[in-house]
Design a protein around this nucleic acid. Sequence first.
DNA 1: AAAGCTAATCTAAACGTTTCGAACGAGTCA
DNA 2: TGACTCGTTCGAAACGTTTAGATTAGCTTT
Lengths: 359, 359
Amino acid sequence: MTKSKRTRPRKSTAPTMLHVAEAARVSVATVSAVVNGTAVVSPALTARIEAAIKDIGYKRNAIARSLKLGKTRTIGLTVADITNPFFTDVVSVIQEVLHRAGYAVMLCCNDEDIETQDDQIQLLLDRMVDGLIIAPAGDDANLKRILEGTNVPVVLIDRICDGVDTDAVVLDNQRAVFDATTYMLHLGHRRIGYISGSLDTSTGRDRLAGYHEALDSAGIAFDDELVRLGNFREADAYKAAMQLLTQPDRPTAIFSANNLMVIGVMKAIRDIGLSCPEDISVACFDDFPWADVFRPQLTTVAQPVRAIGEQAAQLVLDRLAGKTENGPRRLVLQGRLMVRNSCRPHASLVQGAREHGAL
Amino acid sequence: MTKSKRTRPRKSTAPTMLHVAEAARVSVATVSAVVNGTAVVSPALTARIEAAIKDIGYKRNAIARSLKLGKTRTIGLTVADITNPFFTDVVSVIQEVLHRAGYAVMLCCNDEDIETQDDQIQLLLDRMVDGLIIAPAGDDANLKRILEGTNVPVVLIDRICDGVDTDAVVLDNQRAVFDATTYMLHLGHRRIGYISGSLDTSTGRDRLAGYHEALDSAGIAFDDELVRLGNFREADAYKAAMQLLTQPDRPTAIFSANNLMVIGVMKAIRDIGLSCPEDISVACFDDFPWADVFRPQLTTVAQPVRAIGEQAAQLVLDRLAGKTENGPRRLVLQGRLMVRNSCRPHASLVQGAREHGAL
DNA sequence: AAAGCTAATCTAAACGTTTCGAACGAGTCA
DNA sequence: TGACTCGTTCGAAACGTTTAGATTAGCTTT
């Protein structure tokens, strides 16, 4: 065997750089240089190589490339529930921004299950994703351990997680619920039911804190019976609302800590024979695209989904570009109360207004 | 240098099989055998190796593995719009099934743009996905070309694509719209507006065909003015509905060919000062989780999203397992008309009924 | 005791890239 | 005419696996 460049019989697999090199009568190094534009190659060879590439139909193998470079140009993304319009919107934006930057997105949903989440994150890391955007399912001691074993940039969205000190973009949940609750208080409601998300999540806790804060500020005593756990799911929220509505001194208003749960709440209200907003006022966290066209037109706290997605994506991209070497960045965005008409003034207020001749 | 097994100074990168091998004083082949369980290894060595793995914190590098094996255990998934609840539901199910089977999912959205779609599919193929599930954005000559260059199993969902002869799971769109339209005809409506999806998609065409068929069967002359293009998006549908509603002899009912568009339709109805179902009846393709709790409670054609997702995932899995060697399989599922109360009998019917003393 | 098994382990060649340093030819300068 | 540069091109060693085939040691057989 004189030279090692024996012509192989063109297997049935996809063409490789070697095939191109042979066809263009150059070395693979030169082909690589042309494909990636990493070195200057004479016009003559460039032309020959490009012709060969087109001719053979060569496509660079991204896996081999990833192995060599140690980067995959892929970002892992895990959210609790891809069915939730909030996550959907955010995922969509992240997807868009990252794709524009030349990154692919590997998506996982864990159905709010922490173990699934850990598995999936490990899976993503095994696949050498270059970065990770996580909407954590809940407080998770393992997450910390898993993450500190690696050095890929991580961005938490929506929820933060104890001990996981990474970049994050979250909402000022407490403030948002404070505003919403205060709005209901201004309408004269004194018994405001609260359907809470899981308290194992920062969002669950912060939102509930906003409710408490609003009550405190208004000098209203807090009633245990008015807060029920809905775990961010429709079914649980339905049960929770049912309990709220069947108690003797039932609330005159209900706040739901997310979008999925408000549907359960509305179903409970309907099933119990009440109607919103006539008999009971309702507001919730998370906006819907159809909120101002179907009735009752829900008063909601709209999250800036586009901003959340863009910032989260930008945070990873910045880390990847090595732009930010400093400590973790926490971005806190503000929600916006969208007042529509699922909340009505409480009877006492209406009464008062009438007496003052204002109605 | 006596033996080639020199101990390297444990670089800062992730531990590899070589590190494990050195720590356990065995060859990498043996480590591989233990990690994958592909060959029998003596209990003594197995124990040493497992200890070393735990000790060092070794994780198998999936990229290197993929390169060697030529499979990535990843399925590419592209849909037009992850924001659309229909796609969301299907994606969620596919995700779940594939994950259970040990596959990761790489998700792309193309925003109904064919070029983006082609880029993304090429990207997925470059990354050596083992299979592809595609909800094609529209008729796409390139798609055929791109796909026939590879031999990964492909499953089309929701829409099919001329010339792309692969497995597919779709709905009997024509039948579903036929049923819905017929239902409206039975209510006495004679001028039924139709907001169509893009006619570059099979769904757009088939659904419109269902509308035509229903009219034909009922012996009703087809009026061009009643069909408007909404391209499956809210904004376009809004404009389309506006045109429909402002024409002299406006329709007494409107059917929207998907979920996003019906929101535009409802907005148009509201903005023009009409109300549904009092002034005009509305029905649409695709169901909503909240459809029976917000008003008007929309009459819809529900797609069996879970079945679609499961079958699509199963189709790829079967191909990957080599179970089905025969030609392309086409699964056609049936939609289900969910009658709620966004459609009312036409005035003429009510009139007739009253005369017969039935009201 | 030689030959033949079997079972466990290892060696080394892939997989398809990237990239460093060497090699080579052609100019340029003293 | 050497000794230098430059500008191109190439050889070969990685990257971290898998796996076919070689090797070894320990048993049976006869």
